[in-house]
């Protein structure tokens, strides 16, 4: 008998602070698996966001920094321009990337910076207690939309990935999910492609990963993963949004 599945080398063997059933842990693992497979742990520099995943540097076993809320793409730009042969990726939540950091992500993509962005979309601000995020679904109840998100006052869920795909500097965007085994494998494949693009100097790649927040969706982990299929993917369909290479 041979061990066919175990913790990736570049992932620290520690307990993570995430809530039970939170998708962040899965996405963290997939990134580390890809980094191990490409053997780039010693060349990788990650930028953790402000949000639940701010503590990612306690779980990754490679150089990591933490940027101001929403500014990870700018920090990544600074690092990549100085160290073009290192592998730089930002790990950002929906509030970080699509609310306060909208200008940074759009212009970093528009400059076609040769970096990889992992965008975890769980439709709420988790760290601060479940407030509405730019990607909160219509009708979804959150701390700041107690009766459900309503377009007139709260606007519509933002399709940032589709918006970014219009930019010539962007070579690859895919939206995946981590709510079942098949989707987890598809997410890994997408992350792998996004990192390969960077390794081959192709330009800006982004993977949007629909992920669960059982705590602030007020569901069990199992129900939350189902909700991604029944509700979230209606507004955020899975699949390749752009692939120029």
């Amino acid at each position: 008998m041979e061990k066919t599945f175990s913790r990736p080398k570049s992932m620290r063997n520690v307990v993570m602070h995430y809530c039970a059933g939170c998708g962040h842990g899965i996405v963290h693992r997939l990134i580390c698996e890809v980094i191990d497979e490409f053997k780039i742990r010693e060349k990788t520099i990650a930028i953790a966001p402000v949000g639940c995943a701010v503590l990612a540097y306690d779980y990754w076993d490679f150089d990591t920094t933490e940027s101001a809320h929403g500014r990870a793409p700018a920090v990544a730009t600074g690092i990549k321009r100085i160290l073009p042969d290192r592998i730089i990726f930002t790990y950002q939540g929906d509030g970080d990337l699509a609310a306060i950091g909208t200008a940074e992500i759009i212009h970093t993509a528009n400059r076609g910076e040769n970096i990889t962005v992992i965008f975890v979309n769980n439709a709420v601000y988790g760290m601060t207690g479940g407030q509405m995020a730019p990607t909160t679904i219509l009708g979804q109840k959150t701390e700041t939309t107690p009766w459900g998100r309503e377009p007139k006052s709260d606007g519509y869920p933002l399709k940032i990935s589709e918006m970014l795909s219009l930019l010539p500097g962007v070579v690859y965007i895919e939206r995946t999910a981590v709510n079942n085994a098949k989707n987890v494998l598809l997410t890994k494949r997408a992350i792998k492609k996004a990192f390969l693009n960077q390794i081959e100097n192709k330009g800006f790649s982004l993977v949007e990963v629909l992920s669960s927040c059982p705590t602030y969706w007020h569901m069990s982990p199992v129900e939350a993963m189902k909700w991604i299929d029944t509700e979230m993917t209606k507004y955020y369909p899975l699949g390749v949004i752009k692939n120029n290479c």
């Binding site: 700018a74 920090v75 600074g78």
Partner: peptide
């Protein structure tokens, strides 16, 4: 780099400096 705002400029400097 001419950045999209003064905010992103200082954060780019943050990145370049830590590199």
């Amino acid at each position: 780099i001419q950045s999209e705002s003064e905010i992103s400029a200082i954060n780019m400097v943050f990145g370049a400096s830590l590199a």
